[in-house]
Amino acid sequence: MLQGIAFYLLAATAVVSGLLVVTARNPVHSVLWLILAFFSAAGLFVLLGAEFLAMLLVVVYVGAVAVLFLFVVMMLDVDFLKLREGFARYLPLAIIIAGVLLVEMILVSVAVVQNGAAADAVLGAPRPDVSNVEAIGRVLYTDYVYFFQAAGIVLLIAMIGAITLTLRHKPHIKRQNIADQINRPAAKAMEVKTVQSGQGVSPEELL
């Protein structure tokens, strides 16, 4: 009973905040609604007995991804009005596609109600003596080592890609070089220039 109430509360919050993510006028509000949606989804995970996944969802999605979104939304000069320009024009097509999807999803839900989902049978009831973390830890490096390593390579590629596409070596940047800095004699530390009045020193001379 209590579980049922909690489920419907969390599910309704997730759906409504998901809707508001797309419809909110202010993009910052969208991100905040997104965070609420993530929290509700985390609550649903707790109801399923997957508390580790719930914590991960909060830590990774709310803590990192959503905050990153907020940064991007606030720091980039994105004209959101312009992004919405085609909205009315594509609305009829979107409604048709959404309608087809809705019908199909209802068919799927009916199938679940009638036959049940086979995945339920595989997973079975959660075992109280094994914690989430332990259960994941048991399979992560054994049964799923192949996927785990491959996912590691995916992250490596993401890192290589980010560096390749954004890193620029600028020649005039002064980097820290501790040995050089310590070994610099006092005589080289400062140079006195006599500046003619009304002329100044150009930056190139200083380098």
């Binding site: 799923y144 192949y146 996927f147 491959a150 995916v154 590629i157 890609g161 390749t164 596409l165």
Partner: peptide, 23 residues
């Protein structure tokens, strides 16, 4: 299904970067 998806992501992530290689 998992190795299918991880394989797809592995190769497409590299291809996205390659497409933008001339940055």
């Amino acid at each position: 299904l998992i190795s299918m998806y991880v394989g797809i992501e592995l190769h497409s992530l590299a291809l996205y970067v390659l497409a933008a290689f001339h940055r």
